[in-house]
């Protein structure tokens, strides 16, 4: 027999959130949809263009290039931050004052505003006065992130890893701390190796929090704007111009609201699709 899946009164409690989301997400989204099919030269005058902007964006080499850069950046930082975050969480102390010290240290990068992170790393990595820049050049490696695409990518990735690995660490650590001691005791009795403990106890128990961590990092990195904008401004050339930077250049720099709106919607659909695929695959794996 079918049963009610939820308590209808709960809707009353989520009503304030629904209203808030309507104002900060749905209304702007509806406006973007409206802009995406029209042309404007300002003064609230619009001309119907149909799907012209979507076609233009889909055939734009500039869009393809920034999408490719974005996918590469997201893939690289996920491949670094997730294993590194888990490794740091595993090496953190389990009890004593060290726990509080480590947690505070880990939380610090997350508390710094994104534009400040960009400015910090900009100064830190400058080849003439920055500590990192001078150190790398001192090792005999020619490094200048303002002129070399490879150095710009290296610095951007390093900055993101510094800023966001802590999030993975904190989530993974929370997952690790929720494992009852009985599991470890049973593993010890069976003579399990540290790798076996990680593979068959810790990793499965962390799967749920790691799902959230990967999803959050994927979404954040796929929509990254402030940090690379402050650090490199999308340069040198366009080598670190990710999707959101390109979008802002089109919308505000060129005031092409129609193409920018169409690009925003395609961007939004890609994020939605990838998030759904990630979530479905991980939930399916968990169910199995």
């Amino acid at each position: 027999m079918a049963t009610k899946t939820q308590n209808s009164r709960a809707w009353l409690f989520v009503l304030p959130v629904v209203v808030l989301v309507a104002f900060n997400a749905l209304i702007p989204l509806m406006t973007v949809v409206n802009y995406s099919v029209q042309e404007t030269f300002g003064d609230n005058v619009f001309f119907w263009e149909g799907v012209k902007w979507f076609e233009q964006v889909l055939h734009s080499e500039r869009f393809h290039a920034s999408l490719l850069r974005q996918l590469m950046f997201t893939s690289i930082i996920l491949m670094i931050e997730v294993p590194l975050g888990v490794a740091i969480a595993l090496s953190m102390p389990k009890k004593g004052i060290g726990v509080s010290v480590c947690l505070v240290l880990m939380a610090l990068p997350l508390l710094i505003p994104w534009n400040v992170v960009g400015a910090m790393w900009n100064i830190f990595a400058l080849p003439d006065i920055g500590l990192l820049g001078r150190m790398i050049n001192g090792l005999g490696i020619d490094y200048n992130f303002t002129q070399q695409p490879g150095a710009a990518w290296f610095t951007t990735i390093l900055m993101d890893v510094w800023h966001w690995t802590s999030l993975v660490v904190l989530l993974a650590y929370a997952g690790l701390r929720s494992i009852p001691d009985a599991y470890y005791q049973a593993a010890k009795i069976d003579g399990a190796t540290p790798w076996a403990v990680f593979r068959f106890i810790q990793l499965p128990k962390m799967k749920r929090v790691l799902t959230i961590a990967i999803l959050l990092r994927f979404m954040d990195s796929f929509m990254i704007y402030t940090e690379p904008f402050v650090l490199t401004g999308g340069g040198p050339g366009n080598t670190t111009t990710f999707l959101s930077i390109d979008l802002v250049k089109i919308a505000l720099g060129q005031f092409d609201l129609g193409p920018a709106a169409a690009m925003s919607l395609i961007y939004f659909l890609i994020v939605l699709l990838l998030c759904w695929v990630f979530y479905t695959l991980m939930m399916r794996h968990e169910a199995q």
Partner: peptide
Amino acid sequence: SWMAWTWPT
């Protein structure tokens, strides 16, 4: 008017 509504959208 700033939302630029059209009938199709």
